[in-house]
């Protein structure tokens, strides 16, 4: 009776959890009992868990994460510092919009990750090269989302503020900022995803430390459990950051829950 009620109420959750448990169990059992494992090409959850425990207790994982985070934070911070003002100016000044739009749109549409080898060679395998790549990939979502946010400001609301005798300051803080905010956060969410791609590709390409390097090195030396540990940790970080941004979006702009921006 109770179990049945619980199921009907939390059907989604129950089915989701069941599906994950089933998959992990099937993976483990199939590789243990049905197919003999070639440990150089396949691995199973129990071995991954073991490697995970080992890595978490060791120092290298934390060192790698710190290295990658540093490059990421540098690049990302510069993207914020450059991207937001650029987006604001484009939204406010029509001529600036006209001048920059085709160029920036082309840059945004392009796979700038193609510049990775050049950036790494020019700026080196350390923080700078990776940070440059992260910057280049994550700056455009900020520019375009802030731009779209300013543009989306309802002209009627501007008139409302004006009709009550509001100043420019009121206009910026009571209308433009609140309507841009959700776009900005959505932009940050996209920028995080792209920035992570930058870090990973940069470290795959040439590095001597960092989580991306750890993954590719584990692959080169056929240490599959270690590789999965790296992949899972990176994926979890990505999911957590993205989900945090989604929550933040709902917190600052509960009135537009569910609306999507690119």
């Amino acid at each position: 009776m109770n179990a049945k009620d619980y199921y009907t109420e939390h059907r989604r959750l129950v089915l989701g959890v069941f599906s994950v448990i089933f998959l992990v169990a099937a993976w483990e059992l199939l590789l243990t009992y049905v197919f003999p494992v070639n440990p150089f090409f396949f691995t199973k959850p129990s071995l991954i868990a073991e490697a995970f425990k080992e890595q978490v207790q060791g120092a290298k994982l934390w060192h790698d994460l710190a290295i990658s985070s540093r490059a990421f934070l540098w690049g990302f911070s510069f993207a914020v510092i450059v991207g937001i003002p650029l987006g604001l100016v484009m939204g406010w000044r029509r001529r600036v919009e006209y001048a920059l739009d085709p160029f920036l749109t082309a840059m945004y549409a392009s796979p700038l990750v193609a510049l990775a080898p050049l950036l790494i060679i020019v700026f080196g395998v350390g923080v700078l090269g990776k940070a440059a790549l992260v910057f280049l990939l994550s700056v455009f979502p900020f520019v375009f989302n802030v731009f779209a946010g300013v543009k989306s400001t309802d002209a009627l609301l501007i008139n409302v503020i004006r009709s009550f005798g509001g100043t420019d300051k009121d206009l910026y803080f009571k209308v433009i900022l609140p309507s841009t905010m959700p776009y900005l956060i959505a932009g940050a969410r996209l920028a995080i995803g792209r920035g992570l791609v930058g870090i990973i590709v940069g470290e795959f390409y040439a590095a001597s430390e960092g989580i991306g390097f750890a993954i590719s090195q584990a692959g080169d030396t056929y240490r599959l459990p270690d590789m999965f540990v790296g992949i899972i940790i990176l994926s979890v970080i990505a999911v957590v950051l993205t989900e945090a941004m989604r929550r933040l979006e709902l917190t600052v702009a509960p009135w537009r829950a569910g609306e999507e921006v690119r």
Binding site: R11, R12, L13, V14, L15, G16, F18, S19, V20, G193, L196, V197, I200, V201, F204, G212, I215, S216, A218, G219, D220, L224, M227, G230, I231, L234, S235, V236, A238, V239, T242, E243
Partner: peptide, 21 residues
Amino acid sequence: ALLDPYVTSFNASPRIVWLPL
């Protein structure tokens, strides 16, 4: 409900990390 956990987490994480594998 069955596929949502995978779709959400794969979509949010950079698929490029799977390249070495």
